[in-house]
């Protein structure tokens, strides 16, 4: 049996009929063609599928789409809605060389956003802890940590005035 759901993704509201067993990850990628959200392990270990639901980062591979009725979802596509101006986190990732193959990047950036919203100027330890649920097999993490710290400085208003 299909269930009717209405959810908001990156500001756009969609009304869909979904089977109960389909995950948010599948619906984002297959029905909405938002393939920026990746699927890695499918068991909540790698973080490649991370999206933000009502302000909280979650694994979209373990989230049933049917649960998302009435929820607001942010995917990596929503970080730079115009497709032209990048989000400060994305700019920092590029500048610091925090992207190699790119598979972990969408999840990393959304984990970074979830951290920076509550802790704009995190320590390296706090950054590492915040991305401990996101695996990267290329970078060795240092550049990702640098990028998130840099993004925090850019997003935090006091830093723009030299603090």
């Amino acid at each position: 049996m299909k269930h009717d759901i209405s959810l908001t993704v990156n500001g756009d509201t969609y009304t869909l009929a979904v089977e109960a067993w389909r995950t948010l990850n599948e619906v984002l990628r297959e029905d909405l063609n938002l393939t920026g959200t990746k699927l890695g392990c499918g068991s909540g270990d790698c973080g490649a599928c991370t999206v933000i639901v009502d302000g909280k980062s979650v694994s979209s591979c373990l989230t049933l789409a049917v649960e998302m009725d009435g929820r607001r979802i942010l995917t990596v596509e929503g970080l730079a809605p115009s497709g032209e101006t990048l989000h400060p986190i994305q700019e920092a990732f590029i500048e610091k060389g925090a992207i190699q193959c790119g598979f972990c990047t969408p999840g990393m950036e959304l984990s970074a956003l979830h951290l920076l919203k509550t802790n704009p100027l995190p320590s390296d330890t706090q950054i590492r802890s915040a991305i401990s649920g996101n695996l990267c097999r290329c970078t060795g993490y240092n550049k990702i940590v640098d990028a998130i710290a840099e993004a925090g400085r850019r997003m935090d208003p006091p830093s723009k005035t030299g603090r």
């Binding site: 909540g44 694994s59 649920g133």
Partner: peptide, 9 residues
């Protein structure tokens, strides 16, 4: 327990 995403769910 687990990681940030799992703790959020």
């Amino acid at each position: 327990t687990a990681n940030v995403q799992v703790r959020n769910m």
